[in-house]
Design a protein around this nucleic acid. Structure first.
Length: 456
RNA sequence: GGCCGGAUGGCAGAGUGGCUAUGCAGCGGACUGCAAAUCCGCGUACAGCGGUUCGAUUCCGCUUCCGGCCUCCA
């Protein structure tokens, strides 16, 4: 089945043809580890996790390599360390661990390789030296700077001309820059800032160079897909492209990564999420409100490129949807080796159309509820397999609907007492038991085979 | 100011040059001691104005509104 992906570089959907179908390679910009991950970070992770899962499904898990970096040297980390009284190492270790926990809770697979910037300093220095040797960069006052004028295609991804950028005039004009658009590859550190020895003096890398160095060293000079948030197009990805293409002697962005993918931004109740707005929602906050799978579904409910507005209603609806799916799975006999539903697969193959895939899962659910015993199992297997491809329906229906703290034995005893009351037509007693259980969040459902319960 | 995206029924959210998803909420019905779940039925919505067309929500133009980026950003 042809996988079609939207390429930010060409602004259109393209059939995905891996450079080497035995080794499909994707690189996604990961977090700067200085604080809890927020729900916007989570959206990007979930979007590219879906891509990773679809690629694994199409090419085989052993033939896909996913690299997502950790930025563990950056000025915000230094600020966070100072503010918390912890060392930089403590801040990055703690934040990285939290990040891993959060992303796992959202059902995201860990990347195959997770390089850390501080482990690639020599490679970054080597890359900068190559750029300087080739005339694409220069040293000035302890800095190394990329010479934007030496890369003719600068601006190809973000569709902006250098002239426009200068007109924007928010560029930092340092006196040692040849051109206001030139950006930092290496900058000097003071004694109390983290730093490494380099040909330009003790210092630390600029933001963009790490991704160029890490992608090259983990995936090679040319790979298939490079992803990140829409807000990374400029300057981050534009600069990454300039560095890598110039260092590799390539002709343009496609000699670096073939397809550039960007997820849309997230707003909270209609407003841009920002700490200063007081509407900053961390993954932890969301996880306190709902299980990770609910958060994941809420994130997948809008196509990854479209803007997504985060609301309580969205979370509520995601939970209802999962309850409905799990209920339809309740009588599934075995944990299944079923096939993903064709329509679900088709939807995901069209630029990861998760909302459409989900609508097909709803149709499948209706079919299960209507199905005869004989055909039910097959449909349930298809639903379960489809859900798994989306990183959903990872629990057993029993765990999902009835798992948790409360003592199941006690609940069963109550149900038995109620059954007796009903048999004796003491309906007031029966209803009192139902209400008491309901107060604890336990919903009873009377069916032809007796009474079952679930958490509501 | 420059560049780039959006605007679909009460809400969420796909999609399509003619056959108008899907879910939530709502209404009616079946089932049921009650309830829940489930099933059946009910909503012709595509920002506005032009244009192209036999036909446009879908293509083109303009307008309005919303959002992103313009060296912190997923």
């Amino acid at each position: 089945m042809a996988l079609v992906l939207y390429n930010s570089l060409t602004r259109r959907k393209e059939e995905f043809r891996p450079i080497d179908s035995q080794n499909v390679r994707m690189y996604v910009c990961g977090p700067t580890v200085y604080d809890y991950a927020h729900i916007g970070n989570a959206r990007a992770v979930v979007a590219f996790d879906l891509l990773y899962r679809v690629l694994r499904h199409e090419y085989g898990a052993a033939h896909v390599k996913y690299v997502r970096n950790i930025t563990d040297v950056e000025d915000k980390i230094m600020a966070a360390a100072e503010a918390s009284g912890q060392t930089i190492g403590e801040v990055t270790a703690r934040t990285t661990a939290q990040y891993h926990e959060d992303m796992a809770a959202l059902g995201s697979l860990p990347p195959d390789i997770e390089p850390r910037a501080t482990q690639y300093i020599p490679q970054m220095i080597a890359l900068i030296e190559r750029l300087i040797a080739a005339g694409h960069a220069y040293a000035a006052e302890g800095h190394a700077l990329f010479r934007v004028a030496s890369y003719a295609k600068y601006g190809a991804l973000s569709r902006r001309s250098r002239k426009d950028m200068i007109a924007g005039a928010r560029v930092e004009v340092a006196p040692f820059k040849e051109d206001p658009g030139d950006f930092v590859l290496w900058k000097p550190s003071t004694r109390d800032q983290p730093g490494w020895g380099s040909p330009w003096g003790r210092g630390r890398p600029g933001w963009h160079i790490e991704c160029s160095a890490m992608s090259e060293n983990t995936l090679g000079e040319t790979f298939d897909i490079h992803g990140g948030g829409l807000d990374l197009i400029f300057p981050h990805h534009e600069n990454e492209i300039a560095q890598s293409v110039c260092a590799h002697g390539g002709a343009g962005p496609q000699d670096f990564a073939r397809i550039w993918m960007h997820n849309g931004m997230l707003t909270v109740a209609g407003a841009k999420m920002a700490k200063s707005e007081g509407n900053f929602i961390t993954v932890r906050d969301a996880l306190a409100q709902a299980p990770g799978e609910v958060v994941r579904l809420a994130l997948l409910g809008t196509h990854y490129r479209a803007p997504l507005d985060w609301t309580e209603d969205r979370l509520h609806e995601a939970r209802q949807t999962l309850d409905r799916f799990y209920r339809a799975l309740e009588t599934e006999i075995a944990p299944s080796d079923g096939y993903v539903d064709d329509d679900v697969r088709l939807a995901l193959s069209d630029d990861l159309n998760a909302p459409l895939a989900l609508s097909h899962m709803h149709e499948l659910t209706g079919a299960i509820n209507r199905a005869s015993r004989a055909e039910r199992a097959r449909l349930q297997h298809a639903l379960a397999a489809s859900g798994r491809l989306l990183g959903l329906l990872q629990n057993s229906p029993d765990e999902w609907l009835r798992g948790g703290e409360a003592d199941a034995k006690d609940i069963e005893a109550q149900i038995a007492a109620r059954a007796l009351a009903r048999k004796e037509r003491r309906f007031a007693d029966a209803d009192r038991i139902r209400d008491e259980l309901a107060a604890d969040g336990i919903l009873l459902e009377d069916g032809p085979g007796g009474t079952t319960w679930r958490r509501g």
